[in-house]
């Protein structure tokens, strides 16, 4: 648990430095570095075959995955945005409509997709990067696997 808290705190510190990789990659960088340290420490203390070693690794991975899941959910969720705004003041239907302005929502998504390198924007035109194309292919396969309608 101390390694996980360490990873979260290092991530918090890195996030305030405004370094180039996006927020998820930054956490993966910090999380895997501290994770490697945890594996080394557990191996040294218990040995490879010990249940404590595997339990420690699995709990660490689970905590990291849950943390990434939660903060990506909060960043991208429109509902989370509404809840946070409601924590400052009550809203009428009209306020909600303004907050949900779909044009702004789409524009914000496009900005984020460009900043993480999935879209390439030049002269007002957008196209997929290689990584974007790879991701589309992956999710097309996932959609077929889960039998979601196209």
């Amino acid at each position: 648990m101390a390694f996980f808290i360490g990873a979260v705190l290092c991530h918090a510190a890195l996030s305030r430095m405004h370094l180039p990789p996006n927020i998820v990659l930054r956490f993966l960088l910090v999380g895997s570095t501290l994770g490697a340290g945890l594996v080394w420490w557990l191996y040294d203390k218990y040995g490879l075959a010990a249940p404590e070693m595997w339990a420690g690794v699995l709990i660490y991975v689970f905590c990291c995955e849950l943390y990434v899941f939660l903060f990506t959910l909060v960043i991208s969720s429109i509902s989370a945005n509404v809840l946070i705004n409601l924590s400052f003041h009550d809203m009428t239907d009209h306020d909600m409509s303004r907050l949900y302005d779909s044009r702004q929502m789409v524009a914000a998504r496009l900005d984020r997709l460009v900043s993480v390198g999935l879209l390439d924007e030049s002269l007002g035109s957008l196209k997929l990067t290689k990584n974007g194309l790879r991701l589309v292919r992956f999710f097309n396969r996932m959609r077929a696997f889960f039998r979601h309608s196209p």
Partner: peptide, 16 residues
């Protein structure tokens, strides 16, 4: 976001 990427995947280039 995935829907936006999929749309661009089928149309190649689109204006913002």
């Amino acid at each position: 976001s995935i829907s936006i990427l999929t749309e661009l995947g089928s149309k190649s280039i689109l204006s913002r």
